[in-house]
Design a protein around this nucleic acid. Structure first.
Lengths: 211, 211, 211, 211
DNA sequence: GATGAATGAGGCTTCATTCAT
DNA sequence: CATGAATGAAGCCTCATTCAT
């Protein structure tokens, strides 16, 4: 009798796909409702059957972009690698994925970065989850005696900062050409072998600290 | 008859100042040509005597923002601190400045970040200069035996990446609340004590998929 | 084969009810075809089987709104109260009903007013019927010697105008807080005791500009 | 040097005039920004130099519509007619003006009514001022012994309600054809001769009141 | 040199209505 | 009979930029 419940979800996915295409072909600023609808072969008005606003659509696009990275994190954390290797993989696999994306289309990558900026909530939750997983890895590492004298929170914070450029898309973008898996390995090693609470002179011995 | 460019130059400087005020008072989105001109007490049309386009003006603003950071770099590099301390100061002083700016007005800081993004060339040259100075410091450090086995370029790249979050404004913004001079000191120490060419197991000995 | 209009009629009634609910819950501006259809558990397209256009539906809603007021008029006119009391009740009962509606939901009341405005014909016929009934009451009053010197038509017109604010929904809305049954009684008394054809000086004896 | 300060006020007035023309020619719904701008021979964008929003423009139009009515009120109140005549003129002159407007173009009149509805604040202040002036007239009348037993506030309220149809544009519109200056005179006379606090039977003698 | 005036292009959104299925 | 899908027309607003004076 009635027409079949045409999957609205399918329409959403298709639209997300069209936005992605659009971004990759013409950059972020071409992403107008009219253009997106045209790609999807529908009228701008009809697009609003699938998403309540342009913003909602953009958010969905950003969400999809983050999905694979989340999956990688989960997978690595669930593995039973030794801590040092686990931390390396935790960053390396996501980095590899993003580097590949960047190489395929640097402009598009940049667009996604911008997209993320506009959807801060998403990034925030991604980052928070990353912190959570990192805490687990660091816990395992400390059980093996690493990061002597540091609290878990301190350790998380420091590791995050040191490795920032390999997981923060915004930071990554600007130095992508210089990032390699090999360097990442060195950095992780430096983290495991060099990071502790002991003060070894970077700050002035007699100056700043003393005062 | 025609006055020399001095006049124009003064106008440009004034305009830049007004844009800065505007950003700090009302954020980036209030930065329309009309608003800027109003601040400067001139007509929008007249503004175009000083800058060819809004973009050119914005670029000049970004340029001015970077200036003090450049000066700090020069100053530190010219000092005769020992390498470990020198590297620390190299980052710490710029960081202190930016953190202060951020604390005074996070929204304005964010605006500058955005401005930077839009003027990638500028950032690029700032980064390049930073690399150059860092190379000098690393040279001194290597003369003291640090970074065993690494080439200067490798060392620069690695240090840059590790410390990225303390000098890349975009990266910095997102984690600013967690950044401290103390943590920076720990990181520099980790760099000096943990960074070398030796492979210590982060990467799988027999390849990524070995485990 | 085809079922009689009964079905359609039932659908119309149901739709009218849904519109009323909608108005009372969310005001006049939420009254879109989509929303109405959703309430009625049907598709917007299907709604057009019951009404040719949104306008027709709205008209039907307005019509239903007037129904109880018509019934009151009929009832009062058929009663055998003395003229003065009859006229009072003629207005007072409708007013009481509308004041109650207004108190329950002023926004909804306002929506109905707007609805009325858009369906002027309806209001017109309501007003005409009111005039007709009023004529009967006035006839009875004149038989008792009131409104000396005025024709029936003049009397109707004058009474209508004087009491307008107690029966014209549009006028009523704006001053509702100040309207009371007591004041209405005073006004009816003033009508019965003060309205006649004699000129008592409101108008300049020798013309408007004489003074 | 600079172009002369072209009067922005003049532009506003012109625009208001164009809106008025538009209303009179094509009714309220034709009043779109595009149409108005076209009338004024300018682009829609330019219109925003004169008014911050369509709403502001519409408000100005409504304001202008009310202006002459305000002036009449002031004039009459300042005159030294006797109270009965003064009250008559207070209503009659405004009514004459509005009736003339309505006769010239009933549709336009209706548009103004709608305009008023949308700019309730304006109407409110107009009404309030009217109340204020009416109070003065009633004061004078009471000094002559009218409205026995009523407080000033009661008297204002009652007179307002009785005469409502001759000054409330919304109410007036619907019955305009039946409104005349003669009838108004009768009504004012009825007010002066029939309005008092005495209960003369409109309300049930033994019923409602007794309980 | 400096201005006021003016604009074109573009962006998002809403909604009554139609139509093939 | 009833639906989901689709749309065209319309509406408001912003802003960088140009140009005659």
């Amino acid at each position: 009798m009635a027409r079949p419940q045409t999957d609205i979800e399918a329409g959403r996915e298709a639209l997300i796909g069209h936005v992605i295409d659009l971004i990759e072909e013409r950059g972020n600023s071409a992403m107008t409702v009219g253009e997106i609808a045209a790609r999807a072969g529908m009228s701008p008005a009809n697009l609003y059957r699938y998403f309540d606003s342009k913003e909602a659509l953009v958010e969905a696009v950003a969400e999809r972009w983050f999905q694979p990275k989340l999956e990688i994190m989960e997978e690595v954390v669930a593995s039973d690698l030794p801590p040092r290797r686990k931390m390396f993989e935790f960053y390396a696999r996501r980095f590899a994925l993003m580097k590949a994306e960047w190489e395929r289309d640097p402009v598009a990558f940049s667009s996604y970065v911008e997209l993320g900026k506009e959807n801060f909530e998403l990034i925030r939750s991604y980052v928070d989850l990353g912190d959570h997983y990192l805490a687990m890895i660091i816990g395992e590492a400390m059980a093996e005696g690493h990061f002597a004298g540091l609290s878990v929170d301190e350790a998380i914070s420091l590791v995050n900062q040191i490795t920032n450029v390999y997981c923060n898309i915004g930071a990554m973008e600007m130095v992508m050409p210089k990032l390699t898996t090999e360097k990442l390995a060195r950095i992780i090693d430096a983290v495991f072998d060099g990071l502790s609470a002991s003060d070894r002179g970077a700050r002035a011995v007699s100056g700043l600290r003393a005062a």
